Computed example of a mutant assay.
Amino acid sequence: MGFRDISVFNLAMLAKQVWRLIHNEQSLFYRVYKVRYFPNCSFLMEELGSNPSAVWRSLLATREVVREGSTWQIGDGSRIRVTTHKWLPNAPAFLHEPNAEMKVRELIDQSSRQWDRGKLAATFTLRTCKQILSLPLNQLDSYDTLVWTKNKAKTFSVKTAYRVALRLKSAALAEHLSAREHGVTWGKFGSSTYLRRCEHFCEGHAQIVYQQGTTCAIERSKSGATCEFCCQELETVAHIL
C-alpha cells in the first residue's frame, strides 16, 4: 500500500475517525465526546485538558493533520473565526490588531448578501481584500463546512492524510535537528571559559579607551576647550570624572 512509516499511518487512520467526528454531529460518537470533552467550543479549538484519556489524547494528536489538509468552505460564516481558522489561500493580513473572536459572518452584508467592501477595506490589506472578494457567497443558507483539499474529489482519504502527516513529521524533525545544532553553538558561547575571555577582552579595551579619553581631556583642558556634553565648563579631568 506504500505506507512505510507505521506511526504516521496510525495517525492518518485516527485522522479519518476525527474527520467523521467533525462531519457527523448527529452521531452518538459526536454527542458523547461533545458533552465530555468539548462542550463549549469545536473539536478543533479544544485544549487537551488536565486529565485526558488515552483515546482523547490520540484524537487530538491528529488535529494538525486535519488543519493542514483542509480548508473552510463558507456557508453563513458563523463558525469560521477570521484570525485562527484556515479559510483563505494565505493567512489574512490586517491593518490593525484584530478581534480574536471575529467571525466571517461579520464581514458579510446581510441585506445584500455580499461581502461588506467597506468593512473589508478598513480591516485588511489590499491583497487580503482581493482574496476574500474572490470567494463566492452562494451558500449563505447553509453551515460552514470543512473541506479536504489534498485530492481533486475534495474527500478525505487515509492515503492523502498519510502524505500530509509524513510531511509534517519530516518538517518537525528538521526543525528539531536545527534547534539541536544551534543549541550546541550557543552552548559554546555560554561556557565559563568563553565568558571569562570576553570579560578580559572588554576590561582591557575599556581601560585603553579610558586612558585615551583622559589623555585627550588633558590636552583639551590645556587649550581651554569647553566640555562637549554640557557646553558650559572647561573640559578638565576632574569635570569628566
Rank of each mutant, 00 (worst) to 15 (best):
R196L: 14
L195C: 13
Y194Q: 06
H205L: 07
E199K: 11
F189R: 08
G183Q: 13
K188D: 08
F201D: 05
E175R: 12
G183H: 09
V209W: 05
I208Y: 09
L195I: 05
R196P: 03
H176V: 03
S191V: 01
E199S: 14
H176I: 04
V209N: 01
G187H: 05
V184H: 06
R196I: 05
Q207G: 01
E199C: 12
G183W: 14
E175H: 04
E181R: 08
V209T: 01
G204E: 01
E181S: 13
L173K: 10
G187C: 05
L195Y: 03
A174Q: 11
R196E: 15
Q207P: 00
H200T: 05
I208D: 15
F201S: 03
F189C: 06
F189S: 10
E175C: 11
S178H: 11
G187I: 03
H200F: 08
R197Q: 06
G183L: 09
H200P: 02
E175S: 11
C202Q: 12
T193R: 02
S192A: 12
S192Q: 09
L195K: 15
T193K: 06
H205F: 04
Y194C: 04
E175K: 12
H200M: 09
A179K: 15
H176S: 13
C202K: 10
F189G: 09
G204T: 01
W186V: 03
F189W: 09
E181W: 10
A174R: 11
S192L: 11
L173Q: 12
E203T: 06
A179P: 01
F189Y: 13
R197G: 08
G187V: 01
I208P: 04
L177S: 10
K188H: 14
R180Q: 14
H176W: 14
Y194K: 07
H200W: 09
V184Y: 09
S178I: 02
L195T: 06
F201K: 04
H205Y: 09
V209P: 00
G187R: 09
S192V: 03
T185V: 13
G183V: 07
V184N: 02
R180K: 14
C198Q: 13
L195H: 13
E199V: 07
R180D: 12
V209Q: 07
K188G: 07
F201Y: 05
I208W: 04
S178M: 12
G187N: 08
E175N: 12
G204I: 00
E203G: 05
S178D: 08
L177E: 13
G187W: 07
H200S: 12
L173R: 13
A174C: 07
I208H: 13
L195S: 11
S191K: 06
C198E: 15
